[in-house]
């Protein structure tokens, strides 16, 4: 497989995954804020969405106030904002186009149709059809794309590279959501509303990661912060958990790798080490200083991604 094609596919997958998570986070927060407890301000919800997407500073630099339609425009429709859904999908599609002959017709046509949808939708359309229709369409396209990735591709290096992109980005986005939520939780004033508000934020996190139902089946209990973090971080059965994604990352790297002896500092070493370390981490250790834990974890993941790019994706 050409290194350039590998690079295209890797970034195609990352962009697709990225817009899915940002969209879901925005969707969940938008709808939960409609009937949120009174003390939850609309602005802080918008801020949370921007923070999670990594677009808060950019937004503030360009706009005077936190305002719903502006935020939707910025995150959904801005051609120039590199985290916007429209931008991400257009990059994903350009990357897919450059690797058109390596992927299935079904996958290509879905990405292409997806692109034409995000590219044609305007702020007025969203105003008219409502946020649900817009975000739902995007999430639907994402599911179809993921379906075709799993159903229409040979389990070869092509698939492994795409999967690597998906799982690295998924782990990154889940951690970004956790970190943003931890900050939201920290801001809750210590009054008698606190537990209501905490529950509100935790449910938002579970819904944003598409794990609300899974976690209920697993715990059969009222959600709390500790079990939510444990579920999203250490549960090997949960397809959104960090450890699950690291396992996938390691498996894909093992599949692609032709290195027999794994040297310290190599990509293979880094993947194995991250997975092993996390597998032997307890939720108590995480809970000691959760923010520091996730920041470190993110750094390790960025390092892994760098190693991957250097080894396989440079041409």
């Amino acid at each position: 497989m050409l290194a350039r094609i590998a690079n295209n596919l890797f970034w195609m997958a990352r962009y697709l995954e990225r817009s899915e998570h940002i969209t879901r986070y925005a969707q969940v927060h938008y709808f939960s804020s409609i009937d949120a407890p009174l003390s939850i301000k609309r602005e802080s919800v918008l801020e949370s969405v921007l923070q999670m997407a990594g677009a808060y500073t950019d937004y503030v630099n360009k706009h005077d106030e936190l305002e719903e339609t502006q935020v939707v425009k910025f995150i959904g429709l801005d051609d120039l904002n590199p985290i916007s859904v429209r931008y991400s999908i257009s990059r994903a599609r350009e990357n897919a186009r450059g690797a058109r002959d390596s992927i299935s017709t079904e996958l290509w046509e879905t990405i292409n149709t997806y692109y034409h949808y995000t590219n044609s939708i305007q702020a007025e359309d969203i105003a008219e059809q409502g946020m649900y229709e817009y975000t739902h369409r995007i999430l639907q396209y994402s599911s179809i794309v993921n379906g075709y990735i799993d159903q229409s591709l040979l389990r070869d290096e092509t698939w492994s590279i795409i999967h690597l992109g998906q799982h690295i980005e998924r782990a990154v986005q889940i951690m970004r959501m956790i970190v943003t939520k931890l900050m939201d939780l920290n801001r809750i004033p210590n009054n008698h509303w606190a537990s209501t508000l905490q529950l509100f934020e935790i449910v938002n996190l579970l819904k944003s990661t598409e794990t609300y139902d899974m976690s209920k089946i697993f715990y059969k209990d009222v959600p709390n912060a500790t079990y939510t973090l444990a579920f999203l971080t250490l549960n090997a059965q949960c397809p959104k958990s960090i450890v699950y994604n690291l396992q996938q990352i390691k498996d894909c790297i093992d599949f692609i790798s032709d290195d027999k002896n794994v040297k310290e500092g190599s990509l293979e070493f880094q993947a194995n080490k991250m997975l092993a370390t996390l597998s032997f981490t307890t939720i108590e250790e995480v809970a000691k200083n959760p923010l520091a834990f996730y920041y470190e974890c993110l750094n390790q993941l960025y390092k892994l991604s760098d190693l991957l790019e250097k080894k396989y994706l440079t041409y």
Binding site: R4, R100, D101, Y315
Partner: peptide, 27 residues
């Protein structure tokens, strides 16, 4: 390229060494 099952390359994917042409793959 797709219907023939061949690799689609750009110039930057290829190089010439000792009068043989190579493509830059992940391996």
């Amino acid at each position: 390229a797709q219907v023939m099952g061949l690799t689609l390359v750009e110039g930057r994917d290829l190089f010439v060494d000792k009068n043989f042409v190579y493509m830059k793959t992940i391996h």
